[in-house]
Amino acid sequence: MRNDSRLSRMLHVLLHMARHEGAMTSETIAAMLGTNPVVVRRTMAGLREAGYVRSEKGHGGGWAIAADLETVSLLDVHRAVGGPRIFAIGSEHSNPDCAVEAAVNEALA
């Protein structure tokens, strides 16, 4: 993932995770973002270290929300994913059919 789209992509992922029951695998998240599962795991590691998500191993494992997202700010997520340029926010690949992406992009605009 490019640094300038990491924040918006992780916001997108967090919102999908919040709406999803159970854990989401790196493979599922990677398919949603059009990237590699290894990239997802590296990026999610920062969110895990910050306490916003947790990783669950084994059958049915994956990534799950670990914090009340109502208390997490955009700056918190930005810091957790290591985005160097706070004002270079935007969607690299738009998906007009995704209501979550539309809401994220509208909030960021």
Results as ranks from 00 to 15, higher is better:
R19Q: 10
V53R: 03
V13L: 02
T25I: 03
A45H: 09
G46K: 03
D97K: 12
V104C: 12
E21N: 09
H20C: 06
R2F: 06
G58V: 08
H12P: 06
G51A: 08
V77P: 04
T43W: 00
I65Y: 09
R41V: 09
A67C: 07
R6K: 14
V104I: 13
A66Y: 03
A102I: 10
E70F: 12
V53D: 03
G61K: 07
E101Q: 15
A80G: 10
E92W: 12
A23I: 03
A30L: 08
H20M: 06
H93Y: 15
L7C: 00
T35M: 12
T25H: 01
R48D: 09
V38M: 14
R9A: 11
R85N: 10
R41C: 11
C98N: 11
L47A: 08
H20L: 05
R19D: 07
V38N: 13
A80R: 13
R79K: 14
R85F: 00
L15P: 01
V100N: 00
N3R: 10
G34E: 04
R54Q: 15
V100A: 02
A45Y: 09
N3W: 12
H20F: 03
G58I: 09
V72C: 05
E21G: 07
V38W: 14
I29P: 02
V38C: 10
R54Y: 04
M1D: 01
